[in-house]
């Protein structure tokens, strides 16, 4: 029997109002023990108020070689940013 525990990715919410952020991984046989291990490893110094664990094998990632086709097309669409719009000096808050 293979006694090695599978890998889980750990996400911590540092405090209320913030998103969960990836912090690292733990090994555990199931979700409940993965949560306990994540608590012991990643929140010893009050780093969090909420945890997610996800089996690493279940993460679907974008292909780094497709970085150009996925992300570069967004580069020439400056009109999505408010800084592209020059306003008359009299308009203060917009």
């Amino acid at each position: 029997m293979n006694a090695a525990w599978p890998l889980w990715e750990v996400f911590v919410r540092a405090r209320r109002g913030l998103s969960h952020t990836h912090v690292g991984s733990v090994h555990a046989a199931d979700g409940e023990t993965a949560l306990q291990a994540a608590r012991d490893l990643f929140t010893r110094r009050q780093e969090g108020v909420s945890l997610w664990v996800v089996p690493s094998a279940d993460i679907v990632a974008s292909d780094p070689s497709a970085e150009a086709e996925l992300f570069e097309p967004a580069a020439d669409k400056a009109y999505r940013f408010p800084t592209s719009y020059v306003l008359p000096a009299d308009v203060d808050h917009m």
């Binding site: 525990w5 733990v26 090994h27 555990a28 023990t33 306990q36 291990a37 012991d40 490893l41 010893r44």
Partner: peptide, 11 residues
């Protein structure tokens, strides 16, 4: 029995 458990027992 595993590093995760070293952490847990120390806590």
């Amino acid at each position: 029995p595993e590093l995760e458990e070293d952490m847990a027992l120390a806590n």
